[in-house]
């Protein structure tokens, strides 16, 4: 029963990570690529780490040796680190791209460009 859950989590996570890579290749400009690259890898990582945590918790319950429990705690900390750093990094790249003069392709509206021109 738990093995099926682990397999399902692995498949969902791998699907979203593959989707992120395809999004990187298919979208037209930096901002839309960031959409794909950030959201899908974060969501996929949640599921892949979740499968590792569930598998190790089951090992811990079966064998009651502490090392699988340590592994799942550390995986959880790595997951929290990914969750905090990934969107922040995406924000930094988007801001840097806009300030270095790359405008969104096929944009309908661009408030930031207007405001920055108004300041000058």
């Amino acid at each position: 029963m738990i093995e099926i859950l682990v397999y399902a989590f692995l498949i969902i996570g791998l699907t979203f990570n593959l989707l992120a890579s395809i999004a990187l290749l298919r979208f037209p400009d930096v901002y839309t690529r960031l959409h794909g690259g950030t959201k899908c890898t974060t969501f996929g990582s949640i599921f892949l780490c979740g499968s590792v945590i569930i598998y190790n918790l089951r090992e811990w319950l079966l064998t009651s040796s502490p090392s699988p429990l340590i592994m799942s705690i550390h995986t959880f900390i790595a997951l929290v680190a990914i969750l905090i750093t990934n969107p922040t990094g995406a924000h930094a790249i988007a801001r840097a791209a806009h300030r270095s003069g790359i405008m969104p392709a096929r944009a309908v509206v661009d408030d930031l460009k207007k405001d920055r021109e108004g300041e000058r």
Partner: peptide, 21 residues
């Protein structure tokens, strides 16, 4: 929901981007 939305846009390529304040 965000991820399903991105999946839909990757497959169909239907986007209408813009920056709003």
């Amino acid at each position: 929901r965000a991820n399903l939305d991105v999946a839909y846009r990757v497959i169909t390529g239907r986007i209408r981007p813009g920056i709003v304040r």
